[in-house]
Nucleic acid binder design. Structure first.
Lengths: 145, 145
DNA sequence: ATTAATCCCACCAAATCACTAAGTTTTAAG
DNA sequence: CTTAAAACTTAGTGATTTGGTGGGATTAAT
């Protein structure tokens, strides 16, 4: 029941891009250094995000990535669903309609459906911008500003 | 971000015991047959539950297991925490206080704390009895009774 | 032309998952 | 007192996932 590094790093990558959204294209090298994660591993995560209209990329010299939309347009749930493959707590909820033949008599199915709902409702109620705002508050509270 | 078979089977095992709570000690063999899971695998899951005051066991001929308490005294969150080891969505929340040195400046920490809260609040609001009641409703709705 | 970036493909070690095997111990019934 | 049937214990195991690394091809600004 853990979010993997793939999802967590993807989130930190996008947050890093959001924090530098006015600095043009940002190279993976810089993100890797700031976030202290492997650039090679980020290279593997990026194409998952790049497929959708999430990022805009520039190849070659002075290239890099930037967000395609404003930070408040990125729901955390969408990002995690892309990178984790699914945020459903049990595999049977990954297919709609449910394929499991025991579904009709399954005593635990309503439980998993409810859990899935609270998880996705929560994650889809929060955007990258919300996380940045919270961070700003933290800074203020800690007198870092 | 998936609940493993360990947690899911443990839940079904306890639900099976709850459904037969007036039938004395229930053998793993019978549970395995009814739930269509491997008895050998259940033998591996049982000791996790047996440590706490969750089950009462009887060894030897005509032995088996029964619930130590009424079904409404078992919170799903507690059962899953036991069998899954933890229901926290990220490892850093498994320790209290948080050991990660980046915690103070971590932009995503409030997100994970919030997610952890909605998950555990939900799972601790539901008991084995609730799942049984829901099942009864299903039966009524489907005219199985 | 050079440099610095993305992009692409393959590989790999370690951990976890989902069991299975082979027995030992305990207890009620005959 | 023997026997059958259950819980209990310990170890092993194949498949999959996780969390990366390495080597190079392609692209584009200087």
């Amino acid at each position: 029941m853990k979010i993997s590094t793939k999802g967590r790093y993807a989130l930190r990558l996008l947050l890093d891009l959001a924090e530098h959204k006015n600095d043009g294209y940002i190279a993976l090298k810089d993100i890797a250094n700031r976030q202290n994660v492997s650039k090679k591993y980020l290279e593997q995560i990026i194409p998952i995000l790049n497929r959708s209209d999430i990022l805009s990329a520039n190849r070659g010299y002075q290239g890099g990535y930037k967000l395609a939309k404003e930070p408040d347009q990125y729901k955390i749930g969408e990002i995690l669903k892309l990178t984790e493959g699914s945020i459903a707590p049990v595999a049977c909820l990954d297919h709609d309609p449910i394929e499991c033949e025991r579904a009709g008599e399954c005593v635990t199915l309503p439980l998993w459906k409810g859990l899935y709902k609270v998880i996705s409702d929560y994650l889809n109620s929060i955007t990258l911008q919300d996380l940045l705002d919270n961070q700003r508050e933290l800074y203020i509270n800690n007198y870092v500003i």
